[in-house]
Design a protein around this nucleic acid. Sequence first.
DNA 1: CGTGCTCCTGTGATTAGATAACATATCGTT
DNA 2: AACGATATGTTATCTAATCACAGGAGCACG
Lengths: 158, 158
Amino acid sequence: MTDQAFEPHDHGACISDGVAAVERICVERGLQLTKARARVLEILLSEHRAMGAYEILDVLRADGLASQPPVAYRALEFLTKNGFAHRIERLNAFIACSHLDGAHAPVFLICRVCNSVAEAQPDPARSEVDRVARSAGFAVERVVREAEGVCPNCARAA
Amino acid sequence: MTDQAFEPHDHGACISDGVAAVERICVERGLQLTKARARVLEILLSEHRAMGAYEILDVLRADGLASQPPVAYRALEFLTKNGFAHRIERLNAFIACSHLDGAHAPVFLICRVCNSVAEAQPDPARSEVDRVARSAGFAVERVVREAEGVCPNCARAA
DNA sequence: CGTGCTCCTGTGATTAGATAACATATCGTT
DNA sequence: AACGATATGTTATCTAATCACAGGAGCACG
Ligand SMILES: [Zn+2]
Ligand SMILES: [Zn+2]
Ligand SMILES: [Zn+2]
Ligand SMILES: [Zn+2]
């Protein structure tokens, strides 16, 4: 149900698989995964936590690439519009998608101790948000579901 | 299940009832509902939509009260910490609570056309967020659930 | 060719949202 | 009166996001 963010895993595979999957989807859909966009995706994939636009910008700058805010924001807009990354509203930050297969309405679990973020993929049929919206006659276009708390690793450590 | 934000109602009662309820609760709990805090609450209650801190500040300024950001942010911190108002993460904005009775884990329905925001009070027992968190061993402390879309009034109008 | 078109990039400036730091005030308690 | 706790006022700063406009790469068409 949740992904591996809170468990030990081969993280090199997270990165390479993520890049490969996005490359494939871009070819399928005729999208341009340009240098800047690919680099931002890599940066996001490099950690299971949300990164702010200016933090990403710092990495780009260290790479010798362009360093003005619009550079990061444009790449992030491309990635989020196409479902390759998500914006975490609670943090004003971004994270690579870890469920690239199919449409989804993810739930994010944000650890306030280690800052890791897990993207979970709940059963879409029984969302309380949808239920409530339907009963109000409200047409939902986008849903934000984010939980802040302590992940199992940090709970054990304490 | 949802409140009256999307339906015609006696809005004067929304404001007076809201202020009265908060006043009562503050007395009960020994909280100080000072001039600035009460005024910010009134401003939030005056509309069923979320208002930004600087927008609130403009109203305070028009009232001849203090006009620096911390004034608004401190009042908003008091109101949100005590459950009298909520922060809408998606909008970086605030709205008065419309379910002052009891603890709650609200769902917000945000109309992108008329900007009205309804606070719904779903059955807490079957939250998808809680279910997912439990299965991941994640200890939830705060939940954000916000749906963006079109309210029934605006859907009819279109 | 080379012109126009579309999409992407680079850069400077500006706007919006939030907090830090520090001084002052108010009020009840001793 | 002196004190501590809480709330306010003000300046400056910081972070996040967008605007506006100039250029550049790729491609289609004549
Ligand atoms: Zn990984
Ligand atoms: Zn953690
Ligand atoms: Zn009302
Ligand atoms: Zn509406």
